[in-house]
Every structure is written in structure tokens, then in C-alpha cells.
Design a protein around this nucleic acid. Structure first.
Lengths: 181, 181
DNA sequence: GTCTATACACTGATAGAC
DNA sequence: GTCTATCAGTGTATAGAC
């Protein structure tokens, strides 16, 4: 029971874009790995950019969901803790994690992509929801940093004798503490 | 009193690589901006990779200096504070900051570059110097994160009404606190 | 939906004149 | 040190057959 080609293209593209970079990955490479020709890709996606857009859309939707929830809540420590929890849980989903990694590693290449601008905007709004405008700068930065600490674990993994899971747990703990600093 | 071409190539390349990405920047572009031809670049650098290598070398040397200093010190809180201070001061130098930004934004593209491996290794060794092997995972991650918090300020700048300098100061304060968590 | 075939621009890199 | 000229290769994208 094999998935449709469109989904398979997304999967292979996401993996190669993340491993090698967006620019460094050619449509020929993607097509070859799928056992189809380049022309076939163009039936499913208008351009190379379009493949990326379809991936980023997923992530934007998730962050927007989080943002909507955050906006419906009072700006308390409890809410920030819960937001962090939700963000971390979301980041555990394989698809989400893959897209997040792709985005982390291809910031510059994706720089002018409208979807990326949109995502950055939403992400910014999310960090804004973690503080009141009048809060001290250190508090605001600290809370924003808490979200990014969750990502940090992914590329700190190599650290040393710690397993990926241990690093992940430690990052979450550090993130939690960043909320109360 | 104009600098030599080699240095000008490095400057332009660094700026374009950072702004547009390594792969997305062609040698033709660099040459055009300098008012020379592609062939001229090849007199000064063996390959495109070579230009990057010359830039990264600078950063590696700086981190190795820091590492050497760290190794000569006892692993105390005082030392970690001082290390953070030195790292932050170093990151203020325009050239260093530019190279650091370039590296942040082109991780994937530079993935297989031997110089990058070397740099990651040195950076890892530096974070390792901030803890004893027996320290709790949370402490170790927290301290490593302190260094990265200094970088975070650079792309959190957009945050809101805060100036770049305010964000920077706040990041340093958060980083300091991460040492004591 | 997927193929073959092709257009056309641009890439990194080299050879050799000045 | 910088140029012109050129290379082979690859890139994205399209037209049209099956």
C-alpha cells in the first residue's frame, strides 16, 4: 500500500534538503531517488520552491495553532509553562522535527521566500505572547530563549556521553527554568 | 590607500555568502562586485571552497585561543563567567561577528567542509571545559547553552521595540544566569 | 501521470595571452 | 595580477508523445 507520488516527493525532498542543503539538492537527485524523471516532479509541483512551500505550510499551521491558543490565555507563568510544554510536544512529531531542522539549517537559502517571512512573523508573535510590553528586557529575552533552547538540543546532541534523549530532557528542564529567571 | 585584492575578495565573499547563502552566491557575482573577472579570483584562491576556508581559519584560531585559556584554568564558576565574558567580547569584533553569522546561516551548505568539522570540534571542546564529566546533564547543557545564548541575540534583534544593543545586553545577562542555574 | 527530448542560462574551473 | 576565451557539467523548466 504505497503512498502517492506527491507525498513521496515531499519526503525525499525534505530529507535531501536537510542533509545537503536546498541549493545543493537538484531536482535530478530527487527524481533519481524516487525512480522517476525530473519532468514527473513538475507535474506535482510548479517549481522547486513550490516543494518547499508545501513543507513550510505544515509548520506555519502548527505555530499558528499555538499562537491562537496563547492569545486565548492570560499571560501568566502557568500559561508560559504550558506553551513550552505544547511546543516541545509538537516538536517531537517526526514530520515537525524534520521540517524544523530543515528550516534551521537553510535560513539563508530560504531568506526571500514569502512563506519563511510568514513563519518568522508568526514565531515572533508567539514569543511576544510570552510577555507584556512593559516587562523588563531580560525577562522577555529569557522567555523567548526558552523556546529556542528546545531546538538547541537537536544540534547539541553530539555533546558527549549523553544520549539524545538525555540531552532532550535536560534542554526542556533548562527551558523551564528560563521562564522563571 | 586601498587594501589588497585578496582581502577585498574575502570581504565581499563573506558579505554575499551571509546575505544570500554560500551556494546561491556565484563567483561571477563576487567578481562583478569587485570589478574584476572570475579568473582573477582564481589567482588568489584555488577554489570557491578555499575562500570559505580562509574565513573560517580566523574563527577557529580565536576559539582555539579561548580553549587554550580555558584549559589553563580551574573549572570554577568564576572561570565560566570569565570565559563567557571573553567569548562575548570576541563576538563584538566586526570581523568575528560576520564570520559567526555566516557560519550560523550556512551550516548545511558547509556540512562536509573539513574546516567546519574542525570548528565544531573545537567549539565542543570549549563547552566541555565548562563542566566536569560527573556534573549533572542539566548543568552541562545549561552552561553550553549560555554560549549559544550570546549568538541568539543576533537573530532575536527584530524582537520588537528593543534596540539591538538592549537585546545584546539582555542576552549577556541571561547567559550569565544560565551559568548558575 | 509519467516519459523523452530539449532549451537555455549559468556554474566552477582552466589555459594561455598580455 | 588580471584578462579573454572556453570547457564540461548541471541547473530549472517546458513541449509534446504515450
Amino acid at each position: 500500500m504505497r503512498e502517492d507520488t506527491r507525498t513521496r516527493i515531499q519526503e525525499v525532498a525534505l530529507r535531501l534538503f536537510t542533509e545537503q542543503g536546498y541549493e545543493a539538492t537538484s531536482l535530478r537527485e530527487i527524481a533519481e531517488e524516487l525512480g522517476v524523471t525530473k519532468a514527473a516532479l513538475y507535474y506535482h509541483f510548479k517549481t522547486k520552491d513550490d516543494i518547499v512551500a508545501s513543507l513550510v505550510d505544515l509548520r506555519i499551521a502548527e505555530i499558528e495553532d499555538l499562537l491562537a491558543w496563547a492569545k486565548s490565555q492570560p499571560k501568566t507563568l502557568e500559561m508560559r509553562r504550558e506553551l513550552l510544554e505544547r511546543y516541545a510536544e509538537n516538536l517531537k512529531l517526526p514530520r515537525t522535527l524534520q521540517v524544523a531542522r530543515f528550516l534551521e539549517r537553510n535560513q539563508t537559502a530560504m531568506r526571500d521566500h514569502p512563506k519563511i517571512a510568514k513563519m518568522r512573523e508568526t514565531m515572533l508573535a508567539l514569543t511576544a505572547e510570552m510577555s507584556e510590553p512593559g516587562d523588563p528586557a531580560v525577562d522577555r529575552i529569557s522567555r523567548a530563549l526558552a523556546l529556542f533552547a528546545l531546538h538547541a538540543g537537536k544540534w547539541l546532541t553530539l555533546q558527549d556521553d549523553l544520549t539524545e534523549d538525555e540531552v532532550d530532557k535536560a534542554c526542556r528542564e533548562v527551558a523551564r527554568r528560563l521562564l522563571e529567571i
